[in-house]
Computed example of a mutant assay.
Amino acid sequence: MIDWDDAFDNSGHVPGSADLPDIWAREAAAFRASARPELDVAYGPGPRNRLDLFRPEGTSRGLVVFVHGGYWHKFDKSFWSHLARGPLAHGWAVAVPSYTLAPEARIARITREIGQAIAHAASLVEGPIRLTGHSAGGHLVARMVCDDSPLPPLVLSRLARVVPISGVHDLRPLLQTKMNDQLHLDETEARTESPALHARKGATPVTLWVGAAERPEFLRQTRLIAEAWAGAGIRDIYEPGKNHFSVVEGLTDPASPLVAELLE
């Protein structure tokens, strides 16, 4: 019998992970101080319906939106500002939204909020749109290109690429975890909010990115959606040596393979 709590326990299998939130917060604050973003831009009525917008020097080439993880019940945008560094260096504006966390919000509501955040950011920046997100954020950006996408048609038409990083694409196993005390998933929502159980909407290229040294469940989740969505424009990449936390650091490096894939 599978121990699903252990299967999704990234922190318990990555040495030093307890120190990472403090490190992320410091690096993000330092980057905000140097980048002078537009902070706390409201995209909805909730107190966490806010995004930070980082603009490049000169005219932007388009918009990148990064959606953070934390299993839908942890963190906010302030931990992740430094992940804008890579795309920003290539002339792309970067939006980093917060969203209402579980248990205050169910995952279906969080999906709608991210749709609102992307639509509002799109109204502020012209040009093509590229989406990326990590872990739960990977799930949320994948939901944007499902057959029931919450994005308006005009925003969908501007999508140039989606790169879910270490996403959770089949939520049904979470029903068997202690985490569900926070998420309050039931069988219906677990199915309707699982990207791997939906058809892909349109032909937006999707690259499913995961660290090759991650927990086996995250490798399985990536293979699952890659197979479910197999076809033109779908790729799955397993980055050598990267764990669940180090894999997203590629967004800080303008020369990283992850940034190259996102902006291809």
Rank of each mutant, 00 (worst) to 15 (best):
D148P: 10
A199D: 14
R235I: 00
V65L: 12
H82K: 12
H90Y: 03
S34N: 10
P103Y: 02
L39I: 07
L140T: 05
G62W: 07
Q116N: 12
V94Q: 00
A199V: 01
T177L: 04
T192N: 13
V94S: 04
P21N: 02
P257Y: 10
G12E: 12
L174V: 03
R36Q: 15
G62I: 08
I107C: 13
A119G: 13
L171E: 04
F79M: 10
L159Y: 03
F54T: 02
H68I: 06
D5C: 01
V163T: 05
T207P: 03
E113Y: 08
A84M: 05
L171M: 09
P150W: 08
W24M: 10
R112L: 13
R36A: 15
Q221G: 09
L83W: 02
I129P: 14
G167M: 07
A29C: 11
R85N: 05
G241A: 06
R109N: 10
P128T: 03
Y238P: 04
S166I: 00
W80P: 05
F218L: 12
P257G: 13
E214Q: 06
R191T: 14
I118Y: 07
L140A: 03
F75P: 08
G46S: 14
R200E: 01
S123I: 00
P164C: 08
L251C: 10
I107P: 11
G250I: 01
S123V: 00
G91N: 03
R109S: 14
A232R: 12
W92V: 10
D22Q: 15
T132V: 09
L258E: 08
R109A: 15
S194I: 00
G70E: 04
T252F: 00
R223W: 01
Q182W: 06
R215L: 15
P87R: 10
H13V: 04
Y43G: 04
G233D: 02
Q221W: 06
T222W: 02
L183G: 04
V41T: 10
L185E: 06
E214D: 13
S194N: 09
D6G: 11
Q221C: 09
S157H: 11
F75M: 12
G62N: 09
K178G: 15
E38C: 08
W4T: 10
V65Y: 04
K77M: 11
A95K: 11
T132H: 06
E227C: 10
P47Q: 05
P173G: 08
A93P: 09
G58F: 05
S78W: 01
A260E: 12
N10W: 03
E187W: 01
V162N: 01
V155K: 07
E187F: 03
H139A: 11
T100V: 13
A84E: 06
T177G: 03
A122I: 08
L156W: 02
G211I: 02
G44Q: 02
A33F: 08
G12W: 08
A89V: 08
R158I: 00
R143N: 13
S123A: 12
A121S: 15
H73W: 09
D186F: 06
E239D: 15
H198I: 02
V247H: 04
Y238S: 14
I165H: 04
A160W: 01
H134V: 10
H184A: 13
E189D: 12
A102V: 03
S98G: 11
A29V: 09
H120L: 12
I110K: 01
S98W: 00
R32G: 14
N10G: 09
I114A: 05
F54Q: 05
S17C: 14
H90R: 15
L156Q: 15
F31L: 06
A228G: 12
